[in-house]
Simulated scan of single mutants.
Amino acid sequence: MAKCPACGKEVKTAKKTWKMAGKPDKNGKRTQLTIALYDCCGNTIRQVIDKQKI
């Protein structure tokens, strides 16, 4: 769920979600991010909805 910066409304349904793995840290573990795109008032809002060490 994301908050629209233009109107302040809570947007519940994501238009698109995907997973992305970041660079390894000092211990060799990567952080997997789940990112979602939301649409409201003609704006596209991108938000990280989950983080995991893999």
Rank of each mutant, 00 (worst) to 15 (best):
T31G: 05
L33W: 08
M20V: 01
K9Y: 10
M20N: 03
K16T: 02
C41Q: 11
K9F: 10
L37C: 09
G28N: 01
Y38T: 00
D39Q: 14
M20Q: 13
E10A: 11
G28M: 01
D50Y: 07
A36N: 10
D25N: 15
G22D: 04
R46L: 01
C40W: 09
I45T: 00
Q52W: 11
Q52L: 11
V11F: 06
C41T: 03
E10V: 15
T17C: 14
A14G: 04
G42W: 10
C40G: 08
C7F: 08
T34N: 05
I49V: 15
R46W: 02
T34M: 08
M1K: 14
K51L: 04
C41E: 12
K51D: 05
C4D: 07
G22W: 09
T44F: 05
I45C: 02
K15E: 13
A14D: 07
C41S: 03
I54Q: 06
I54H: 02
R30V: 01
D39A: 05
A21H: 08
K15Q: 14
G22Y: 06
K19D: 14
D25V: 00
T44A: 05
D39F: 08
G28R: 09
D50E: 12
I45M: 04
D25T: 01
E10M: 15
Q47W: 04
Y38M: 02
K26W: 04
Y38C: 00
I54L: 11
C7S: 11
A2F: 11
A36D: 15
I35Q: 07
V48F: 12
N43R: 14
I45N: 01
Q32F: 04
T34F: 06
V48M: 11
A6I: 00
E10N: 13
A6M: 00
I35E: 05
N27L: 06
G22Q: 03
W18L: 02
K29G: 00
N43I: 11
K23T: 11
E10G: 00
G22E: 12
G28V: 01
K19E: 15
I54G: 01
M20A: 02
D25G: 13
T34A: 07
K23I: 06
K16G: 02
R30N: 10
P24H: 02
K19Y: 11
N43L: 15
D39V: 02
W18K: 04
M1V: 01
L33P: 03
I45Q: 03
C40V: 09
T44S: 15
T13A: 09
T17S: 15
A2H: 08
D50M: 07
T13N: 13
G8D: 12
D25Q: 08
T44G: 08
T13Q: 15
C40H: 13
L33K: 11
E10C: 00
Q47R: 11
G42A: 10
A14P: 03
K19R: 15
C40K: 08
K51E: 09
D39I: 03
I35F: 10
A2N: 12
C40E: 14
K23C: 12
I35T: 14
L33E: 01
K26P: 00
Y38P: 03
G42H: 10
T44I: 10
T44D: 13
N43K: 14
T13K: 14
C40M: 12
N43E: 15
K23L: 11
P24Q: 08
K53E: 05
A14M: 06
A36I: 05
G22C: 00
V48Q: 06
G8P: 03
K19C: 10
K29F: 10
Q32I: 09
G42K: 08
K15D: 14
